[in-house]
Amino acid sequence: MNPYVLITLLFGLGLGTTITFTSSHWLLAWMGLEINTLAIIPLMTQHHHPRAVEATTKYFLTQATAAAMLLFASTTNAWLTGQWEIQQMTHPFPTTMIILALALKVGLAPMHSWLPEVLQGLSLTTGLILSTWQKLAPFALLLQIQPADPFILITLGLTSTLVGGWGGLNQTQLRKILAYSSIAHLGWMMLILQFSPTITLLTLITYLLMTTSTFLVFKLNKATNIATLAISWTKTPALTSLTPLILLSLGGLPPLTGFMPKWLILQELTKQDLSTLATLTALTALLSLFFYLRLSYAMALTLSPNNATGTTPWRLSSTQSNLPLALSTTTSILLLPLAPAAMALFTP
């Protein structure tokens, strides 16, 4: 791809998200989402391969459907209530429809099935953009909507955590596992959305950090399935010992960053007298934890035999830039003591 075209497209990605962030009008928010979708499509087919083209087609069809539904819902809202403000959603019908459209856009269960398929067809870098930057704009809109009925958000959230855990169980492909991990984490964010948008934002940011470092680790190892992970100790021994910590942080184990959002969410749900829901959600997190543990086991807790020449690739220096990986790994492991500061930072 021509570098000027690449820059134009990356600028388009930034422009779309910025427009959605700054808009208070549904039409501009929709425009921003559409710019985002349009700009990422050539980036998805950049490494030209039939799987990438298939994934791009699936992504385009899903996003176009979601955007059309969003536009229909916001015009219906304008028709029923006479205004286009994002924060003034009073009528339940367009509100529900917009929540469903945005859920389709970010891939929440039961509208999730496109996400593993799409992510599996992309390169790890594009997958990283897809599961981090592309979530920002829809979540900026979701954070501004307060539905009258708590039922829909809780259903979306609980289904997503369950499906995200369940779907990832039998996978051997890392990108599909990351997609299901994304679904599960977004489910946690949806659960707490109407009780504390601050915690939703905190969960989103910590998830973005953790998934960034996971994607970058896999990219450094050039690993797309579990079997490839088993020889990562020959490539980067130090990182191999750190990666289980990143994965368990995604799973939400206590001394790591990933425990912070789950802790706060369960606490807030219990405060809202929803202890059954909190228990159920905590149980679904165990499903996710199982496949994170399996990844950790295959990568670092077992040592596959290898011949003498196969054990020394770590001597060759990598050409990839390691600074983003170092930063995101540090934050995704060590951030838990800063929980009060993080909460204060995200409180409006």
Partner: peptide, 9 residues
């Protein structure tokens, strides 16, 4: 931008 997207695709 759409023009460039279509040309790239």
């Amino acid at each position: 931008l759409t023009l460039f997207v279509v040309l790239e695709l």
